[in-house]
């Protein structure tokens, strides 16, 4: 678990909040509790890391509604729903909307902690991927306009001679650009470069 991860809890029932809080404390997990969805939205940023334990039934803004708002606002936190008796249809809806899992009250601490640790692991992976993506994007920023043009053509498999004639430059110049691109992107093979581009461009490649 990375040190900046926090377990967020949103539940309108104070007893549940306090008891969850003590349990999380007993296993040494950083946590924050909120009594309403509005309070959570107010105090938490989309950059928050960790996971969210979310009561599915709450007055005003329900758990499902908060999940939707978080999605819209770009929150990346894995969401674990806390559901009551007979909430299965709601839980199904929540899962369809991308919830990581759900817990039915009353639940055992072992199950709860297992889900929390899995959520934190998922969050860490997401975080790593995000950092990698940012790193790749930062490297792409350092490429010149000409280098970007060459890279696009490399990525779709064009040979140096084809790229040279396309761009109206000499094959020798293309070779120089290629070397510089590989250097700036810190990769040794074309395959690595394509992988990096796939990571940052899920839309166009995925």
């Amino acid at each position: 678990m990375s040190s900046e991860q926090t377990v967020y809890v949103v539940d309108d029932n104070a007893d549940i909040r306090d008891s969850l809080s003590l349990l999380l404390k007993s296993v040494g997990l950083d946590h924050q509790v909120y009594g309403s969805a509005a309070e959570f939205i107010d105090k938490c940023s989309p950059a928050a890391r960790g996971c969210l334990l979310l009561d599915i039934r709450m007055p005003d803004i329900s758990g499902i509604q908060l999940q939707q708002r978080m999605k819209d606002a770009g929150f990346g936190l894995p969401v674990i729903f806390i559901t009551g008796h007979g909430d299965v249809p709601l839980a199904v809806e929540a899962m369809k909307n991308g919830a990581m899992d759900f817990l039915q009250k009353p639940f055992s601490d072992l199950v709860l902690l297992d889900i929390i640790f899995r959520a934190l692991e998922l969050d860490r992976q997401q975080q790593d991927e995000l950092e990698q993506k940012r790193e790749i994007e930062a490297r792409l920023e350092t490429l010149s306009k000409r280098e970007l043009q060459v890279m696009e053509r490399m990525a779709i498999g064009d040979m140096t001679k084809v790229i040279a004639s396309d761009l109206g430059i000499s094959p020798r110049t293309v070779e120089v650009h290629r070397a510089r691109i590989m250097d700036k992107m810190r990769c040794r093979t074309l395959a690595q470069l394509i992988l990096m581009l796939t990571q940052v461009r899920n839309d166009s490649f995925g």
């Binding site: 029932n13 007893d15 549940i16 306090d18 008891s19 003590l22 349990l23 009250k105 009353p106 601490d109």
Partner: peptide
């Protein structure tokens, strides 16, 4: 019931 269980476990 959930509250009781959580406090006891903690």
């Amino acid at each position: 019931l959930t509250t009781i269980a959580l406090y006891a476990q903690a």
